[in-house]
């Protein structure tokens, strides 16, 4: 059987809220090392990869590898019934056709159980090689969210260019253009406001803002977001979930026609 208890149930709620508009359904894969998901959006332009480590859960048991297909909208409906301070336990029997979500309030006075029917989902899994990126930028997730939201009011695409001192986001549209530059700032006083750039080669790539705005829905999961860029490769937008795992998004670039 599979059983996993997350004291901070809100994490699971935030993860599902962050991905439910991007992907319709997905297989959640559980094995000894943890709970993971990989799914592409319907247009095969972006990909979501979630990884929650077994040791990130207060209790984790997975007797055999299971893949549980769920419709994200339905999972979201159920998780919205959990309180923000509730602990969430997921349970499923081997070869079962449902997954049970148990919500426990902090004082343990309220206990609720919801069963979600599992589905068979054909999923295509992409092998993503571990790569060294030309540039890695770590910036406050709220700052990234603001930039992609602001730029989307001007244009449809953003050019992200990274040099050793700064990362620049630029767009053009019918009404004009916009540029936002964030300088490297390794603030020791306020680590939550730091922007760090690690670069082997300057890089500039263009991406659709619509997807980046969708990824930014993961902002509540982490104080920082990590952007990884290499020439002619998809961007990786990564949210580290402290002590538990990470939620990564991959987005193919816009290319010259």
């Amino acid at each position: 059987m599979f059983e996993a208890r997350l004291q901070q149930g809100a994490l699971l709620k935030k993860v599902v809220e962050a991905i439910k508009d991007l992907i319709e359904d997905a297989n959640f894969d559980c094995n000894n090392s943890g709970f993971s998901l990989q799914a592409m959006d319907s247009s095969h332009v972006s990909l979501v990869a979630l990884s929650l480590r077994a040791d990130g859960f207060e209790h984790y048991r997975c007797d055999r590898n299971v893949s549980m297909g769920m419709k994200l909208a339905n999972l979201s409906k159920i998780l919205k019934c959990a309180g923000n301070d509730d602990a969430i336990t997921m349970k499923s029997e081997d070869n079962g056709d449902t997954i049970t979500f148990m919500f426990e309030s902090q004082n343990q006075e309220r206990l609720s159980e919801f069963d979600l029917k599992l589905m068979d989902i054909d999923s295509e899994h992409l092998g993503i090689p571990e790569a060294e990126y030309d540039a890695t930028v770590k910036l406050p997730s709220s700052e990234f969210q603001r930039i992609v939201k602001d730029l989307a009011s001007i244009g449809d695409t953003v050019e992200i260019s990274v040099t050793k001192d700064a990362v620049k986001f630029g767009t053009n549209g019918d009404i004009g253009s916009a540029n936002v530059m964030c300088r490297q700032n390794k603030s020791v006083d306020k680590p939550e406001e730091s922007t760090e750039i690690d670069i082997t080669e300057p890089v500039a790539l263009t991406f659709a803002l619509r997807y980046l705005n969708s990824f930014a829905k993961a902002t509540p999961l982490s104080s920082h977001v990590v952007l990884k860029l290499s020439k002619d490769l998809p961007i990786v937008v990564e949210y580290h979930i402290e002590n538990v795992g990470r939620l990564s998004f991959f987005l193919a670039p816009k290319v010259e026609e």
Binding site: S43, H44, G127, A252, E256
Partner: peptide
């Protein structure tokens, strides 16, 4: 700037 590439152009099916 133009065409939107798909992910399969970069990554192989696993």
């Amino acid at each position: 700037y133009g065409a939107q590439a798909s992910l399969e152009a970069y990554y192989q099916q696993a």
